[in-house]
Nucleic acid binder design. Structure first.
Length: 172
DNA sequence: TAAGTGATCTCT
DNA sequence: GAGATCACTTAA
């Protein structure tokens, strides 16, 4: 039995969503084939004040989905070759998202997007079957003892406070 | 440890 | 319009 996560799931506190996303399944339907992998690692980017977030300096063309409603994808291109996948949380107007950094068999945010054939075509689309990329609850329970929190990767530019906050969660 | 790679952002 | 930056990966 599996259940597709709806907007309601994502329209909550970002840290809570991130915590509960661990153990859920990222599901991709692409050219007639469906692939699913369990989410194993995520990072929180929450609010206007988070200096590590793209939203820290207000809305731009790129980060627009972060300011939109929950349950939509925010996908951006970086380092000239990598796509990053985020799911938007919280209500419209409040910029927040969870970066999906790893699934079983594809560790690393850019590896996972390559694995699932994810690019800008999905940016801004909702996490539903219609868009071809969504998240399912397949009743896997991840106990807190198996979740490790640590500082987010590659955000040293955000200053010590925001760089050190333990907003990266992964299953160990 | 460092190179690769190009869109996006922030100034001029 | 130019220059810097970048929520990374790979190969060494």
């Amino acid at each position: 039995m599996s259940q597709i996560l709806t907007q309601k799931f994502f329209n909550r506190q970002t840290e809570k969503v991130a915590r509960e996303l661990l153990g859920k399944f990222l599901v991709r339907r692409y050219r007639g084939k469906t692939t699913a992998r369990m989410i194993t690692e995520v990072e929180v980017y929450d609010g206007f004040n988070d200096k590590a977030s793209h939203a820290a300096r207000g809305p731009t063309k790129r980060n627009a989905p972060m300011f939109g409603p929950a349950g939509h994808w925010y996908i951006y291109f970086t380092y000239g070759m990598h796509w990053m996948l985020n799911i938007v949380t919280r209500e419209a107007g409040y910029p927040a998202a969870v970066l999906i950094r790893g699934v079983q068999g594809a560790n690393g945010p850019a590896r996972l997007t390559r694995f699932f054939k994810i690019d800008k075509k999905l940016n801004g689309l909702p996490a539903t079957k219609e868009s071809g990329l969504w998240v399912e609850d397949r009743r896997v329970r991840v106990q807190s003892a198996y979740i490790k929190k640590g500082p987010r990767m590659g955000v040293g530019y955000a200053g010590p406070y925001w760089a050190r906050r333990r907003l990266r969660l992964r299953i160990v």
